[in-house]
Design a protein around this nucleic acid. Structure first.
Lengths: 254, 254
DNA sequence: AAGTGGTCTAGACCACTTG
DNA sequence: AAGTGGTCTAGACCACTTA
């Protein structure tokens, strides 16, 4: 009895390390500054490099650090607020939506996407590849699946599989009446091709935004957009009848 | 010359492992089934346990696996779709919003929150703790900050810091005219207290949903909700003028 | 060529759950 | 007490960037 529960809770070393480094980042480092290398840091804290890395990994996950192989570890700028709301319901590519078409092929969509499309099994779909940039940095990579039932192959002609064909599919899609859409956000890890576009290593944590576009009582298109989780904060500038003036500075990365 | 770039791309072992295991999960395992333990698996694949763990970690990040210390590794059910849209703009706690009040204290909000609240530095705020459950499982933990400027201390009286006080603050908050809100989603790692509520280890990946509530041209409240990233897919059942009938089965976890 | 972070190993011990 | 995943170590080598 009376064995009070003090002194227990042997906090893991990497967790404590994370706290220490995090506080050091706040007080002693400026954005963009480079940290000592991992071997030095590990020695300085008297831990194995693997343990030190565990702490750095979490800090990178939280967007506090940026690590680049062959270069070093730097203090990351605050995450960018990226607007993913859909002000006036619009098809992808309508108005100026910050996405840059890269290419377009016609393939059998993966199972997970086919489930979302109201498509017969084995129906092919236009697959538009787009990239979202901000200040030259890639924020997100998107695959937009448009079943042939929504935009017949003949409508886009035989334009080769480049940006031109992508734009052609998008503009055909816009001819349909858009009846609604819904959206989901979840955590994922970057596939090899997305990682390449996003300038990250495969497996990097990403926020996957899946959007379904409805037209004619069907799912006319599905977009799977992969945002860099380290640099992006997805914002939904929802409603709000009046423009609010807040001095809360939503800092954008420079 | 002629050194064609075949045979290159030495895919990391853990990445290949992940693919192999992922395919095995699809074909040979049912949801809830337990996998062999890590030492056996590592031996079976002829890799060190650390390498095997790297693959399992990614699969857990993607919501494919669930690992529990002392128990084992099981095949996770598909992620739950959790609605985080705000159909008719409403204050937290209005109608039935699936959140269960736990307690309420009055503290100085952390810096990151104070920046969002249009509050003088050093102004205290009611801090309401709420939990969101689904089928008995915790999905999310929330901290709702309500500055004293929005709900004066005298309005809630001296109810002790339990659920009753939480409900009192919420109902006072609902008396204010809600003029708008905005919302952001980003990746984070669970703080110790959130981890406990969510039945996860500290540092577990979470989706952090930050909501600002505007009233009287000010930010009247800020909510920071921490969703389990492994089990949750956040859905925004945005607009959509008609109810769509899709046979795409949005499987819910049982 | 030198220096960085990324991968990998083969151990050890710890914290936790269950019988 | 036995078995699980979680933490930690002290090395080694690899892939990449920069000079």
């Amino acid at each position: 009895m009376g064995t009070t529960q003090l002194e227990t809770v042997p906090e893991p070393k990497y967790w404590h390390l994370k706290t220490v480094i995090s506080e050091a980042l706040d007080s002693d480092f400026a954005v963009g500054e480079i940290l000592p290398n991992e071997r030095d840091l590990a020695a300085r804290f008297g831990v194995a490099r693997a343990t030190l890395r565990q702490a750095l990994e979490q800090l990178e996950l939280e967007g506090r650090l940026q690590r680049r192989r062959g270069v070093g570890t730097t203090v990351a700028p605050p995450r960018m607020g990226v607007d993913v709301s859909t002000p006036r319901q619009g098809w992808p590519g309508a108005g100026q939506d910050a996405w840059q078409p890269i290419g377009c092929t016609t393939v059998l969509p993966p199972h997970s996407v086919a489930r979302l499309l109201d498509a017969e099994d084995g129906e092919e779909a236009h697959t538009v590849r787009r990239l979202r940039l901000s200040q030259g940095q890639p924020l997100a990579a998107e695959l937009l699946y448009v079943p042939l039932a929504s935009v017949p192959a003949r409508a886009v002609g035989d334009t080769p599989s480049g940006p031109a064909r992508a734009r052609s599919v998008l503009s055909e899609l816009r001819r349909l009446p858009l009846e609604g859409q819904d959206r989901a956000v979840e955590l994922g890890s970057a596939r090899a091709d997305d990682a390449k576009e996003l300038d990250r290593l495969p497996g990097a944590p990403v926020l996957v935004v899946t959007t379904r576009y409805f037209s004619g009582g069907r799912t006319a298109a599905v977009s799977v957009a992969t945002y860099r989780a380290d640099t992006c904060r997805l914002t939904f500038g929802d409603f709000g009848n009046l423009e609010i003036s807040h001095h809360g500075q939503q800092r954008q990365a420079s």
